[in-house]
């Protein structure tokens, strides 16, 4: 299991467009990827789940990744968040 935290810098938070991109990215991996923040959590492959968390700018999220390709996933997910969120 791999975990990292990230503070959202996108002004709008995880809004529809980047959420869509996040889902596409997360679906590339076999590992289960969970995003959690403020006692809420959702699977990163579920668009409505992620969007309904209402993650805003400045929120610190925790990403937990577990599965066969977790090594690759953690590296790529980290750079995804840095680049887009």
């Amino acid at each position: 299991m791999k975990t990292f935290t990230y503070k959202i810098t996108d002004e709008q938070g995880i809004h529809a467009r980047p959420a869509g991109m996040l889902i596409k990215e997360a679906k590339k991996y076999q590992s289960k990827i969970i995003v959690s923040a403020d006692e809420k959590e959702a699977e990163a492959t579920k668009l409505i789940g992620i969007m309904s968390m209402g993650i805003k700018c400045g929120t610190e999220i925790t990403v937990t990744i577990e599965g066969e390709d977790e090594e690759l996933a953690v590296t790529n997910m980290q750079s995804f968040f840095k680049q887009y969120l």
Binding site: R17, A19, G20, K46, L47, G49
Partner: peptide, 19 residues
């Protein structure tokens, strides 16, 4: 493309597992 992505999001909504 940037503004068009909302339609992409719409089709992803339709494929959402929970939905």
């Amino acid at each position: 493309q940037e503004n068009a992505q909302i339609f992409d999001v719409h089709s992803m909504l339709l494929e959402d597992e929970d939905y």
